[in-house]
Design a protein around this nucleic acid. Structure first.
Lengths: 180, 180
DNA sequence: ATCGTACTGAAACAGTCGTTTCAGTGGAGG
DNA sequence: CCTCCACTGAAACGACTGTTTCAGTACGAT
């Protein structure tokens, strides 16, 4: 019966969104989601195993977004992705994402392995699919720039909460692309 | 005699650049720099006090860069900043910066307070000084975009190490600005 | 009824953490 | 010489960490 396992993972995910991953600890987590450290270790093998599944879930959430954003040219995809990034209800997920990103840069081992590099590739691939001719050097530069703008604006937004200014910045660069 | 204090801070800073701030611990740090937890606490009051000074130093390092990058139009400043960001010898400092950035988003209290928001403002101010008329809405959008590109490309670079691709992306947007 | 297997509560284990207590150094000023 | 004071080594404190040990409980199959 992995119902309980899935349920606990879902609750642990919600808890991680609220409290962050950096100082996640089994005892407080278990207490908050009505379980025990013993059970969490039994179900997930180790804390690292649990964290790995939490990160996988965070990545899965983003992949769902990226899939929904498909279709149309680069401008449409950027618009769709940005409106998702700027939505207040995704703020917690995105700070969690940034946490995993920065952590994977300083500690290449552990559950975070390759998290940063993987998400770069995930996103670039989706952007490439939105380009008519994605195999040219110019196209690669174009989508790298698009990714940089989205993420740079996200960093800004997460720190300042200024939706208007950051959205204006993202929009301003899309006008350059063809409006398919 | 604060010679010793400055010396220890300098060494602790070097240690933090190598090992990151997230799981910084007094005993290993003290052992590595030829001191003791007792002395570190005596000199800096608490671990938080030490971390605060380390972050202040990281910020100071960036302010030096930003000051050197001054002069010229937005394109020149971007070029100067990017060449600094892309330099391999600054990789450690920048991952440390990102670590502090993400940490300050999830734990608003503690030594990290406002670290993210502060650095956004630091950078935007320098970019504003590079604009001929910085008080218009269009100028604000323009420099927000410039900041986003620099930081987004930096995120990409830190994860992939692909200097060529990220540099091309940054350069591609500068061509739009006037080459003062 | 008996076995086996999946699960779980309570407690302990060994370790690390930041910080404090206590007992000293060493050297400058009176 | 004595005192004061900035400084430091050693050890302990209490709290917390992930994980393990042990002793069960519940339940389905034989």
């Amino acid at each position: 019966m992995s119902d309980r396992r899935d349920d606990l993972l879902r609750q642990a995910y919600a808890y991680a969104l609220e409290h962050g991953l950096a100082d996640l600890s089994l005892r407080p987590l278990a207490a908050a989601i009505g379980s025990s450290p013993r059970v969490l270790l039994f179900l997930f093998g180790s804390k690292d195993g649990l964290v790995r599944e939490l990160l996988a879930r965070a990545r899965a959430d983003q992949l769902v977004l990226l899939d929904q954003a498909r279709g149309g040219g680069l401008a449409e995809v950027m618009e769709a992705v940005w409106s998702w990034l700027a939505a207040p209800e995704h703020r917690a997920l995105l700070t969690l994402w940034l946490e995993g990103y920065s952590r994977s840069l300083v500690a290449p081992d552990g559950p975070w392995t390759d998290f940063a590099r993987t998400t770069v590739e995930d996103w670039l691939k989706v952007l490439a699919d939105a380009q008519p001719a994605s195999d040219t050097k110019a196209a690669e530069t174009e989508r790298t720039l698009a990714l940089a703008v989205l993420r740079g604006a996200l960093l800004d937004l997460l720190a300042t909460g200024d939706v208007e200014r950051t959205t204006a910045a993202v929009r301003s660069i899309m006008t350059g692309y063809g409006q398919t």
